[in-house]
């Protein structure tokens, strides 16, 4: 399912007291890819993603979500089916838990979209298994769980509806490192299943590791929209202008380039970076013979690792 935004403007409020937030947005979210949205707080990221499942309707312009078109005039009733197709995981989604037991909470979504109790239960169990939730806790109250477990239940609550597209608003915020790693794995799995994923994140490492393409928001406008490799190839000063950081590996790479090193591609992981660096250093250096020219030598001919 492709989501396509055409000429979208959005303002909060009505009448005289409107606050314009989004201005002239044109974007396409390709099927089966992970699109990351980055930008300062207040740049309009969350407002933008709320257009994707029609929680907000555009003030002007159109949003095409699969076969649905949402404009300013679309009736509220026509919007509900869209939410079955585009799942939305809000920031700190554990605050939406309400049911007496974990399993009931996860069943809530499927049941709203017409599943029978039996179907909903199956969907819920499948979703809970996917987020690695312990089977023995299904009948626990969600309010007795740890923060990390609550997050899993909330995620499962959206997964259980089996939406074609999923939107995540800073899903890893407040998770421990292991929880974050597991979450990233989950996003990859979902992508590999062919789901379209939209991810808001402040962690550039996450964006680098996951995203196919990146949308950079600034003051309610799209400042950049391109493949992740192209984006991070931009100069450091551009990122400073957007008040964004570079991922650590790439920041390091760029510093090394200033010292005369030349890399053939952006390092996505520490491992990748280490391999590329090793390729740059000549064997003489590695055997311990100090070479005074090594630093200033622009080495391009070293063995290339992938």
């Amino acid at each position: 399912m492709v989501i396509n935004i055409e000429g979208l403007d959005f303002a909060y409020g009505a009448g005289k007291q409107t606050v314009p937030v989004l201005k002239n947005i044109n974007l396409t979210f390709p099927e089966g890819q992970i699109t990351a949205i980055i930008g300062q707080t207040g740049s309009g990221k969350s407002t933008l993603v709320q257009q994707l499942n029609a929680l907000l309707k555009p003030t002007a312009g159109e949003v095409h979500i699969g076969d649905h078109t949402v404009t300013n005039k679309t009736k509220e009733k026509a919007l509900t089916p869209i939410r079955a197709e585009v799942g939305m995981v809000f920031q700190f989604p554990e605050s939406q838990l309400f049911a007496p037991t974990v399993i009931e909470d996860v069943m809530y979504g499927p049941k709203n979209f017409g599943a029978t109790d039996e179907e909903a239960k199956q969907a819920a169990e499948k979703a809970l298994a996917k987020v690695g939730f312990d089977t023995s806790l299904y009948d626990q109250s969600p309010f007795n769980l740890s923060g990390g477990q609550m997050r899993r239940v909330a995620l499962a609550g959206v997964l259980a509806m089996n939406p074609q597209t999923m939107v995540f608003d800073e899903p890893a915020a407040g998770l421990d490192p292991q929880g974050q790693a597991e979450l990233l794995d989950l996003l990859r799995t979902l992508r590999d299943e062919g789901k379209t994923i939209v991810l808001i994140s402040h962690q550039m490492e996450q964006v680098l590791a996951l995203a196919n393409q990146v949308v950079v928001m600034k003051d309610g406008q799209v400042a950049a929209h391109e493949p992740v490799e192209e984006l991070f190839a931009r100069p450091q000063s551009w990122f400073a202008d957007q008040h964004l950081d570079l991922p650590e590996t790439i920041a390091f790479q760029k510093e090394m380039e200033k010292q005369g090193f030349v890399f053939d591609h952006l390092a996505k992981t520490v491992d990748d970076l280490a391999k590329q660096l090793a390729g740059q250093l000549d064997s003489a250096k590695l055997t311990g013979q100090r070479s005074d020219q090594a630093g200033s030598q622009a080495q391009t001919g070293g063995p290339h690792h992938e």
């Binding site: 929680l55 509900t80 939410r83 939305m88 809000f90 605050s95 939406q96 809530y108």
Partner: peptide
């Protein structure tokens, strides 16, 4: 908070009307 929770549950298909 109400607005936020409302949106989250609407995303899970809640309909109050």
């Amino acid at each position: 908070e109400t607005d936020k929770i409302m949106k989250a549950q609407k995303s899970r298909g809640m309909s109050l009307s």
